[in-house]
Design a protein around this nucleic acid. Structure first.
Lengths: 209, 209
DNA sequence: GGGTCTATTGGCCGATCGGACAATAGCGCG
DNA sequence: CGCGCTATTGTCCGATCGGCCAATAGACCC
């Protein structure tokens, strides 16, 4: 076994209890050191600048700047930064966004310790790791067509109770076009009506509470 | 200072990492001992039977039996059981359900360590504790009328894309009555149509992803 | 005992929806 | 340079929705 350098890890999560616990668990792991903790995106990036750790363990849901935004900004400044997302959400959209934003890996918080440690090491080595339960969800989502940006915009308005005519006015298009987008949504989300479309939107993570 | 007996605590959460960390943190706290951990409701209750701890720290969202159901079953068997809910959700409905099911307290996972420990002690002492951020959410929800059981049932069907006629058939009532329930939902949730009602349902925690 | 709330039902009607038909323009990919 | 996808718009139509009127019965609280 060659002498593997210790992995220096930056822990970012807005749950103090989880953070403390996690730091403790990880520091026990030989070859991993938690060099700092942050509870929001801004301080996470500031700490990265200062400490240049090997990897960031990043939560998706945080107050202020969320996980994705943090990830994007970090990668804009440090394109080689390795980041492992550690989150509660298995929503396909969240996973897709995270990976597109440059995440090196994505695991949910119910992973076992060994898996988490393995994932951290793999991400540091430059690999792409995705938790298996996450991967399953992702595969399920891929089956039916992807929702386009415009459709997502329309879904957001449907959610707010706007009629097709309203949506047309708000987006500067005809009612008929709005109708077409809603129709596409119903099809892609396999919904019978707009109410079910909204429900599916939440289920898939297209819409957030 | 009189000799206060050590609080024996049962930790229930389906996130192994959080559990390990939390156990560590709490065991550090003088006067608190984590006597066991469980990752689902059934084993939580079994452990309670065997160990008779002083308090349970219980997560809301778990695979299989969820937190509320676990709480209900536990309280049915041990009406005096002290349970502190520790969860990510601030949804008023979740809080209401938990308190109605006999929870002694309700705090979110982003509490600081000191607050958590204080909450544990208070619950053990028989008090009702509610995190302040939680309390705020709860107060906001109280403003508009409460949704009845029947209406909630209807909302669940609306979510699935059923028409009023469908709902009537499914519930063994007339279409007109289903319509009345939907109308009541629109009013209470301040929604313009069923799509918005579904959205509000998710926002309020009436509906789960 | 009276008031409040929920669940139930009826009819009427204009507004809205969702499906089916069909068509044009722009964009990225190979 | 076609091929496919997205965005756009149109018309017609039956189904559905949501608001309006009003009414009865049971449960629960003060």
């Amino acid at each position: 076994m060659p002498n593997i350098p210790t992995i220096r890890l930056l822990l970012v999560d807005d749950h103090p209890v989880l953070r403390a616990g996690l730091a403790n668990v990880l520091n026990y792991e030989p070859g991993i050191t938690v060099v700092a903790e942050a509870d929001d995106g801004a301080s996470a990036i500031a700490l990265w600048r200062r400490l240049r750790p090997d990897v960031m363990l990043l939560d998706l849901s945080m107050a202020g700047m969320d996980g994705i935004e943090t990830l994007e900004r970090l990668r804009a400044e440090f394109p080689d930064a390795r980041v492992l997302m550690l989150t509660s959400s298995e929503a396909p959209e969240d996973v897709r966004h995270a990976l597109k934003a440059g995440a090196g890996g994505y695991v949910t918080k119910n992973v076992r310790r060994a898996e988490l440690v393995a994932a951290i090491r793999e991400v540091c080595a430059g690999a792409r790791v995705i938790g298996e339960s996450v991967a399953r969800q992702l595969a399920a989502g891929e089956e039916s067509g992807a929702v386009s940006r415009r459709e997502l915009e329309v879904l957001g308005l449907v959610r707010q109770g706007f009629t097709n005519a309203d949506i047309g006015r708000l987006l500067g298009i005809s009612e008929r076009t709005a109708k077409a987008h809603v129709g596409a949504l119903l099809c892609k989300l396999q919904a019978a009506d707009r109410a079910e479309a909204v429900a599916r939107g939440f289920e898939r993570g297209l819409l957030k509470v």
